[in-house]
């Protein structure tokens, strides 16, 4: 039986959230801008597909565009277009061992927030009135995904809840405070549609769980030590740089969209048998990194051979 492409569900869910945000939640953007950024993302995908000579597939670009429309705000259309360009081109240009490093939406937002004060993300825009509606929509994604790489979502939710609840218990705050922080649409979007991106998370389950915990700890640092907004976005971008290292230490099967949800191209013993072999692997990592580092560069057409992995 042909498996249902989880990206189609994501596109549907994100579109619903965007429509709801534009009509009921007074998002600080317009229909025109939302359409523009989605169109720009798909356009950028087409251009990059031509340049890198891979088959054009608009689905992942549509997801990136929708996510940008949901999250990124600016008075200037130029920055929105730039975001779409950065998101898509990062997938093609910033790669390591045939896999892109950053979640496209995440890197576009973070890069622009570093580059200019004229863009912002409003984590409060969702409120928490319709939280449970969002939750159900997002959970639907897990069902469609057949829980293939939902482990990173579960691990992150567990780690982040532990951070928030632990902090409030330590400070003697009522639990309504961490619950209020967890009932946030932006957090759901991040957890179910951004950090779970199978193309940028570590290959092994253990690696993904480690990654999720690191992202939660990083977000804690940004939010509660630096008192900076959007801790989860900053932390994901920073932790994404660690994914190649995690993949070397804890290797696993590479994900491809084509095989849909539960595809594993490596035998299962790689998933959990990392502990006994960890030391030799660290040694080989040191060796591999010498070999692998030159490939971490920005260049055209170098990965033509891994075309199927590029598309999303």
């Amino acid at each position: 039986m042909k498996r249902f492409d989880p990206r189609l569900y994501q596109i549907g869910a994100l579109t619903l959230l965007l429509l709801y945000g534009l009509t009921a939640l007074d998002f600080d953007t317009t229909w025109f801008r939302a359409a523009l950024v989605i169109g720009a993302a798909i356009g950028a995908q087409w251009v990059c597909s031509r340049i890198w000579n891979v088959k054009f597939d608009p689905r992942s670009a549509a997801i990136s565009g929708l996510s940008l429309a949901l999250l990124l705000r600016s008075n200037s259309i130029v920055f929105l277009l730039a975001a779409a360009g950065i998101a898509i081109s990062s997938k093609f240009a910033i790669r390591w061992r045939g896999k892109h490093i950053f979640n496209p939406t995440n890197i576009a937002i973070v890069a622009l927030m570093i580059a200019t004060p004229r863009v912002w993300v409003s984590p409060g825009q969702w409120g928490n009135v319709a939280f449970f509606g969002f939750l159900i929509t997002c959970l639907g994604g897990l069902v469609v995904n057949r829980a293939s790489r939902s482990d990173v979502t579960y691990a992150f939710i567990a780690a982040w809840s532990a951070v928030l609840i632990g902090r409030s218990l330590w400070f003697g705050e009522p639990l309504t405070i961490p619950l209020h922080r967890l009932e946030n649409g932006a957090l759901l979007l991040f957890t179910f549609f951004m950090i779970s991106d199978p193309k940028t998370t570590p290959d092994s389950r253990a690696g993904r769980i480690l990654f999720a915990v690191l992202v939660a700890l990083g977000a804690r640092y940004v939010q509660f030590k630096l008192f900076h907004t959007n801790g989860i976005l900053w932390s994901l971008a920073a932790c994404s740089l660690l994914v190649p290292i995690i993949d070397v230490l804890l290797p696993g099967g590479r994900y491809t969209w084509k095989q849909g949800g539960s595809s594993w191209s490596v035998s299962p013993q790689w998933r959990w048998h990392f502990v006994p072999g960890l030391l030799p692997r660290i040694r080989s990592a040191a060796f591999m990194s010498q070999r692998a580092m030159p490939r971490f560069s920005i260049a055209r057409r170098r990965w033509r051979s891994s075309a199927t992995a590029i598309a999303p």
Partner: peptide, 11 residues
Amino acid sequence: PEDLVFQETGD
């Protein structure tokens, strides 16, 4: 339930 936290936007 929690204190008001603000951010300055580029808007």
